[in-house]
Design a protein around this nucleic acid. Sequence first.
DNA 1: TTGAAAGCGGTACCAA
DNA 2: TTGGTACCGCTTTCAA
Lengths: 334, 334
Amino acid sequence: MSDSPNPPTSADVARLAGVSRATVSYVLNNAEAVRISEPTRRRVREAAEELGYVPHAAARSLRAGHTRIVLLPTSHVPAGPLYSNFLNELQWALRRRDYTVVQYGSLGLGGDEAARAWAELRPVAVISLGETALSPQNVATLKRAGARAVITMGPDTVPGAHALVMDQAEVGARAAAHLVERGRRRIGVVVPREDGLELFSAPRLAGAESVAGTEVVRALPMAYTEESAAALAARWGELGLDGVFAYNDEYAMLLMRALQDAGVRIPGEAAVIGADDLLIGRLLRPRLSTVRIEMPTGERLAGLVDAAVRDPSEITERYDLMAAVAVPRDSTPS
Amino acid sequence: MSDSPNPPTSADVARLAGVSRATVSYVLNNAEAVRISEPTRRRVREAAEELGYVPHAAARSLRAGHTRIVLLPTSHVPAGPLYSNFLNELQWALRRRDYTVVQYGSLGLGGDEAARAWAELRPVAVISLGETALSPQNVATLKRAGARAVITMGPDTVPGAHALVMDQAEVGARAAAHLVERGRRRIGVVVPREDGLELFSAPRLAGAESVAGTEVVRALPMAYTEESAAALAARWGELGLDGVFAYNDEYAMLLMRALQDAGVRIPGEAAVIGADDLLIGRLLRPRLSTVRIEMPTGERLAGLVDAAVRDPSEITERYDLMAAVAVPRDSTPS
DNA sequence: TTGAAAGCGGTACCAA
DNA sequence: TTGGTACCGCTTTCAA
């Protein structure tokens, strides 16, 4: 384990192989425009191998004038298989297209600070997942720094950015409509007490409120703990509700269990529907109805990013990508 | 939204402010060694502001000869609040220490490819979360590329790297011991069929096998689907087991439900214990016993990284960081 | 077929 | 107090 003072550079490789740095570059990048003799190629390759040479990405992109970095700011990493599968897919699809995906944690940074920090990396594209609100100025900063595509995925459109609109309101609307179809008119909507979920939960609530045919739509704050669920369940009688949409399947399960423990019959006294179609929703009895969300595939999004980078003017400003569909199970009988 | 052709450089700022590039650098970096007059400072600041100047990270680190990048390779992002909380904590703690945390997705890259790709970024530290096995050569590559700390968090020690040993075997051992204490001697261990979990599941199985007092310890492959769980449950009688440790709480819940549906009494005919102490484990009845894992805090790990970067020789080679403790609930009665 | 050299953007030494 | 300039590692044009 020799602790060499400095990483080997292409000059070191050149020296060892007895050629110039130019030749090293040609060989290692398989330059088509130039013909290098086979013996020379071998000497260079062996020298690079021997030294354990790895090119310096910063130097390379400095020279090139641009990077292939796609920046994925992540302030809060939302747990959940839905999201993490999507992320894995996206990464893989972008890598296939020869982009370097960099997740940049911006926890605790303000919008302006964050945008500047991202811009320093000179990413060719930025995909904001909607956890971090992006202002038009932020978009401008990024574009000035060479970003050819700034893509937001969230409820809103941001001026100057390509928007992949995933309006979570749709989820709430589908859930409430599902309950109304089944004769429930007095609906509770569980809203997580936890921070960092407002961007999802607020539109879901609003979506539920927008549905016709309800008598009451009432927000029910609840934390992701047994105690909080039990407290809410204890108040169920006095709330006078007959159905509840629970933000997602985990909150739904938690509440459903608490209601059962409090002696509330499901679905008789309370129809329950969650969202995200998690497997755990099928474990309790009755089986939990849910709203399944069709995320765009990582492949599709990667294609969009690539197109935007190649020609920013070509892709349209706004795509509506989200589809949501109610999956009826036993917790909301017809 | 003027689409300026090129991002502004410090030279642009210098020109607009009527000073030299050197002065710009001094002002914007608050250089202590040099005294710049207040009026000049203002002119430079205003010029930078007006142009929306953002320094080029690559150029800066090229000149500096090193970066402040801490690389977090993520091949599989394991879902789960345990992991994602830890990640958030770690990012936050490292940022406070002025590091740039970069999560680099290496999905579908081999060990050598991956190590080279990471090395190109010249990170000052690499934290491998154990999803990706790291060879001694890989460590050497990274160190040659300037990494002052390579930290692995996983079951094994890798020569040349600092190891934060989190031996998952401990988890399996605790689970099996817990079952043995409760009189179960014929133990099944659910092993996920899903890829990417071997690094966790294999040691957990091995740990269970290492416990004294068992008659049989049998691996039970199972996928994370209802069908797979049902198939396993249907065979329960012929397996002749009286206890099962199920990799984690999600697999445990799935299997427990399948067993109940197949008419197997829990815990009478089958005691069940999971791992990770997820909240959902408390929803089914009987409540699921589990093995809680004490992860190191992000703050602690960040401190270790920082110490290793400042003086690589100073921190010792190996820390044992993992603690696991059985949490008895109703699925494993005494 | 190969080499010399300029230049990407920023920093820091030395001189003025 | 400020400016000129060399240099970090790599690519690429032009010449040999």
